[in-house]
Simulated assay, not measured.
Amino acid sequence: MPISPNQGSTGGGTTVTITGTNLTGTTAVTFGSKPATAVTNVSPTEVTAVSPSGSGTVGVTVTTPGGTSNPVSFFYVGAPFKSSLSPTSGTSAGGNTVTIAGTGLSTATSVSFGANAVTPTVVSDSQITAVVPAGATAGPVSVSVTTAGGTNNGLSYTYIDAPTITGLTPTSGPTSGGTAVTITGTNLDSTNQVTFGGTVAPFSVINATTVSAVTPPGTAGAVDVTLSNPAGTATDAGAFTYVAGPGI
């Protein structure tokens, strides 16, 4: 007498289908010592029921006017616990893979990023991976994991749009570097790198539209300025000009 699924939440509420023979007139389904709810005799070979709360492994039996069946095993599974998610941000287009660590993840069937759900890859009971779906808008969304034991949330993932550069002030400085430059644009609050002519520059994020950077040493002439975040890179071609000092 098979039962499907053969596992569910310790809180109950799992709808199971029991197949067998001579099931007409089913009067009760029990999980261990507890009666199931919403018992439906679908046909002489099929019964559905909703599991009560429980723990561990219990025997499920079906009772008809002809007697009580042999028990089949049903496994109660606790709700998952998530301890971390990495990375915690990415482009609004989605497509990058995140790793979720925790416990009770071996039966994971769904990971939701806000309103969008994807099917994860189970690595082990303590780790799953998921490909992030596209986000509706930039910003944080809650991340929830659904397993046979239930659904657990509490983690957050942030969708990020690629940056743009709209201006620099000043636009020139000495080849020795050390010029404080204000870069304006959009989606700059998650900036993780600024370069002048391919050389990495120290920077500070002021807000979503402003970053302050200090030019590294360079050679005389115009160079590209690039600014990157986890969603992409913006380039302002020839935006800064290194000026050579006077010689006598």
Rank of each mutant, 00 (worst) to 15 (best):
P2S: 12
P2V: 02
S4Y: 08
S9K: 10
G11F: 01
G12W: 07
G13I: 13
G13M: 10
T14A: 14
T14C: 05
T15S: 09
G20Q: 09
T24H: 07
G25K: 10
T26R: 06
T27S: 15
T27K: 09
V29S: 13
V29R: 15
T30K: 15
F31K: 04
K34S: 15
K34Q: 05
T37G: 12
N41E: 14
V42H: 07
V42F: 06
S43D: 14
T45V: 11
E46H: 02
E46D: 01
S51E: 11
P52K: 05
V58L: 10
G59N: 08
T61N: 09
T61A: 08
V62P: 02
V62R: 03
P65N: 05
G67K: 09
G67C: 05
T68P: 08
N70I: 07
N70F: 05
V72G: 07
F74N: 12
Y76T: 08
G78I: 14
F81G: 07
F81N: 10
S86I: 12
S86M: 12
S89R: 14
T91Q: 06
T91G: 13
G95H: 12
T97L: 08
V98K: 03
A101Y: 01
A101P: 01
G102E: 04
T103G: 09
L105K: 05
S106P: 02
S106R: 14
A108K: 04
V111K: 08
V123I: 15
I128E: 11
I128W: 08
I128P: 11
T129R: 14
A130P: 00
G135N: 05
A136P: 00
P140M: 01
S142D: 12
S142M: 03
T151M: 05
N152I: 01
G154C: 08
L155Q: 14
T171W: 01
S172V: 03
G173Q: 09
G173W: 11
G178A: 13
V181D: 06
T182Y: 02
T182M: 02
T182I: 02
I183V: 06
T184Q: 07
G185V: 12
N187L: 00
D189C: 03
S190D: 12
N192F: 04
Q193W: 02
P202N: 13
A208P: 02
A208L: 01
T210Y: 00
V211E: 00
S212I: 00
P216A: 03
A220Y: 09
V223M: 13
V223E: 10
V225S: 04
V225K: 03
T226W: 00
S228D: 02
S228H: 02
G232V: 03
D236L: 15
D236A: 15
A237K: 07
G238I: 04
Y242G: 10
